[in-house]
Design a protein around this nucleic acid. Structure first.
Lengths: 184, 184
DNA sequence: ACCTGAACACCGTTCAAGT
DNA sequence: ACCTGAACACCGTTCAAGT
C-alpha cells in the first residue's frame, strides 16, 4: 500500500536551488533540503542516489539559467554589439546569482554526461553568435575559449574578492572585453 | 610543568599542504592533519584558532609558491618573451599542482589582511614585468587584470574539465595569450 | 604550555520496519 | 512505493582534566 509521495524530484531540485542561492553549495545539505521539503533526510535517497546527484541536478539547472540569460541579454545589430552585450549579460548573471554561478564551474561534475551536455547547451549562444559574426569555422572553438576564459576568469576573481587594488572594475572589464573582441 | 610540544605551527602547515596536494581542500580535515602530526585532533586548537585558520595558512603558502614559480619561469630579453614565459609558467604551476592552485582562488579568504598581502605578493612579478615593458603607469592595473583574468579563467576551466569539445588546448592557450598581449 | 578523552551538534548514508 | 527512526562513521569544536 504505497505511501503518498510528499515531494518529487523537481520539487527537491527547486528547494535545493534556493538553498544554494542563499548560502552557496555548502548550504545544500541533505538534511536542509529534506527539511525544506517537509520530509526526513533518509527519504531523499528515494529520489536521488546521493547528495552528489542532487548537486549535479542543481548545476545543470544553473547552466540552463545561464543559457537563458545570455540569450535574453544579447542585443544589437552588429557582431561587436551583440558579443559585447552577451559578455555583459554573462557578468551580470554571475554578479546577480554568485552562488548559482559558482556551481557551474564547480568540479563536482567531472565526467558526468548530463553535465557535459548542459555545458555545451550553455555555450551554444556564444558559438551561434561567433558563427553569425562570420568567424571562420576552425577558429570558432579557440576564439570561444579565449572569450569564456576571460569572462569566467574576470567574474570569478571578482566574486572571490581577488581585485583588491582599487581602480575601476567596470572599466577593467570593458577594456578586457575590447582586447578579447579585437582578437575575433 | 609543560608538556613537550609534539608539533608546531610550521610542521602542521607542511602536513596540511601535503594533504591538499594529494586530495584537495576537502582532504584538509582537522583529524587528518592531527593524525599526520601524531597528535589528537583537539591539540590542533593550541596552534590554530580553527580549521579556517589552517586553510588560510596553506593558501598563503600556495600564493608564495606561485610567486616563486612565476619568477623562475620568466625568461627572455624582450617584453613579449618575458610576459609569454611568465604566462606559461603560471599555467604550468596550475597544472602541476592543481589542488594547491585551487586554494589560491578559493573564497575561504574573503577579508583576511594576510591573504590580501600574499595575493599582492603573488601579483608582483607581473606588475614588475609590465612596468619594465614600459606600460604606462595608469594602464598597468587594468592590463594586469585582463591578463590574470584570462590566465585564471583558462587554467581553472582546464582543471575543472570544462574544455570538453576537443581541439588543441595548447594552441588555444597560445592564441589567447597572443590576443591578450596584443592589448599590452 | 601543550596534550588528551569525553562530549556535543552536525554531516551523509544505510537499513529494517512501518503504511 | 514512499516515508521513518535508529544506527553508523565521520565532521569541527569545546572543555575539564592530565602532565
Amino acid at each position: 500500500l504505497p505511501t503518498p509521495a510528499k515531494t518529487s524530484h523537481e520539487a527537491l531540485v527547486g528547494l535545493a536551488r534556493r538553498l544554494v542561492d542563499e548560502g552557496g553549495g555548502e548550504a545544500l545539505t541533505v538534511s536542509a533540503v529534506a527539511q525544506a521539503a517537509g520530509v526526513k533526510a533518509p527519504s531523499l535517497y528515494k529520489h536521488f542516489a546521493d547528495r552528489a546527484a542532487l548537486l549535479r541536478a542543481v548545476e545543470i539547472s544553473a547552466m540552463h539559467d545561464l543559457e537563458g540569460a545570455l540569450r535574453r541579454g544579447t542585443v544589437g545589430s552588429t557582431a561587436q554589439e551583440r558579443l559585447t552585450s552577451m559578455a555583459q549579460a554573462y557578468r551580470a548573471f554571475a554578479l546577480a546569482q554568485p552562488h548559482r554561478y559558482e556551481m557551474i564551474y564547480s568540479r563536482n561534475a567531472a565526467g558526468d554526461p548530463a553535465i557535459a551536455a548542459a555545458s555545451r547547451f550553455a555555450a551554444r549562444p556564444l558559438f551561434e553568435e561567433l558563427q553569425a559574426a562570420g568567424v571562420a569555422a576552425e577558429r570558432i572553438l579557440p576564439v570561444a575559449r579565449v572569450m569564456t576564459a576571460f569572462l569566467h576568469g574576470f567574474v570569478s576573481m571578482e566574486l572571490v574578492g581577488a581585485f583588491r587594488l582599487g581602480g575601476d572594475l567596470e572599466e577593467a572589464f570593458a577594456e578586457g572585453l575590447r582586447v578579447v573582441l579585437r582578437g575575433v
